[in-house]
């Protein structure tokens, strides 16, 4: 699976050096720092990390959206031969919803309560694809049917408060895939839903995106979901990607101590339940006071003297797998042998 994607690297979106800052009373909070990543067509990338690691901010910044008073301080987002962040606001607006679309976390608050579902789905179809009112309605009905909603016509006439959470998220997904975007972003699309609905929604997202060949960037902290859904994983810590690679490789041989901690904190389904779940001691540094070196140094079990003074770069550890860590870089060879043995 990984090999085939290596062979057909038709890049859907490429991010270079993206940084986002929010002004605070204590100076700028660097929510995202120098993030680079690329996703191929049809590929699914999961971005994981704890709360506040910058994964949601990153996903929004991919479409040039930053909440509140934040600003994108640098970087490029290349999509279909153009840098989204260099576009004029009007061109960027046209790309949103058409070339790059997003499924949000909480379908209860992400749909407009005073606008009918029909108007909310039809508007982008008419705007981006130039469909007539009737054609857009027809398309909306078809999209809702594809999401498995039992009565698309009734759903279309409804207002968001008349639908359940799962139904709303299906509507949200129908909206997001409506214009067959090159890149589909999903920010914890199942967090606000019942566990029974979660699997259905993930399957739906996965089916609709692969039918349309969209690249999917998927933000979550649910490792189970990552294993089930994603091809590649990117681990974020304090605004940076600290490790990324094919999901199975990263799960089998995590190269960054933070990734190891993250994976170790998940209890195994089989085997005895531990008395206490493994946790990573301490907490991430405040985003206003990021250290010169690695942000994980204070919590790291294998920190070296150079870690606190010098920022480690992402280096390739195995084909397609990169990590930013001084400690594991030095024992790279032995580790690789241990893994392959």
């Amino acid at each position: 699976m990984d090999a085939s994607q290596q062979m057909s690297p038709e890049i859907a979106v490429e991010v270079r050096g993206l940084s986002v800052e929010f002004p605070t009373a204590n100076g700028p909070a660097r929510a995202v720092t120098d993030v680079s990543l690329s996703v191929a067509r049809g590929e699914r990338l999961a971005i994981v990390g704890e709360s506040g690691s910058g994964k949601s901010v990153l996903s929004l910044a991919l479409m040039g959206i930053v909440g509140g008073s934040g600003t994108i301080t640098g970087g490029e987002v290349w999509l279909q031969g153009q840098d989204l962040l260099a576009l004029r606001p009007e061109q960027l607006r046209r790309a949103r919803g058409r070339d790059i679309a997003m499924v949000f976390q909480d379908p209860g608050t992400s749909l407009n309560p005073v606008i009918s579902i029909e108007a909310q789905i039809v508007a982008p179809l008419r705007r981006h694809l130039g469909l007539s009112r009737a054609a857009a309605r027809e398309r909306a009905l078809q999209l809702l049917a594809e999401t498995g909603l039992p009565d698309p016509a009734r759903t279309l006439a409804a207002f968001p408060h008349q639908l359940s959470g799962g139904m709303r998220q299906r509507v949200m997904i129908a909206m997001a895939v409506a214009c067959e975007p090159t890149v589909l972003l999903a920010d914890e699309p199942t967090t606000a839903l019942d566990v029974t609905i979660q699997a259905q929604i993930v399957d739906l997202l996965s089916r609709l995106s692969s039918e349309r060949g969209s690249a999917v960037v998927f933000v979550t902290h649910d490792m189970g979901l990552v294993a089930r859904f994603a091809d590649r994983i990117a681990v974020m810590y304090a605004g940076r990607i600290v490790e990324s690679g094919p999901v199975l490789d990263v799960f089998a041989a995590p190269q960054h101590p933070y990734t190891r901690g993250l994976l170790a904190s998940i209890p195994a389904v089989d085997g005895p339940l531990p008395d206490r779940l493994t946790q990573i001691d301490g907490s991430p540094p405040p985003l206003t006071e990021l250290p010169a070196g690695c942000a994980f140094v204070d919590r790291c079990p294998s920190a070296l003297p150079q870690c606190s003074s010098s920022q480690p770069a992402l280096t390739e550890r195995r084909p397609g797998q990169v990590a930013a860590c001084w400690a594991t870089a030095t024992i790279d060879v032995s580790h690789r042998e241990a893994v392959s043995a």
Binding site: I65, R93, A95, G97, F104, D106, S110, L111, N112, A123
Partner: peptide
């Protein structure tokens, strides 16, 4: 509100 962010993410013009 979140739904304004959604509208923006769907490429809705600012006056709308």
């Amino acid at each position: 509100r979140d739904y304004v962010r959604t509208a923006r993410a769907m490429g809705t013009p600012e006056p709308t």
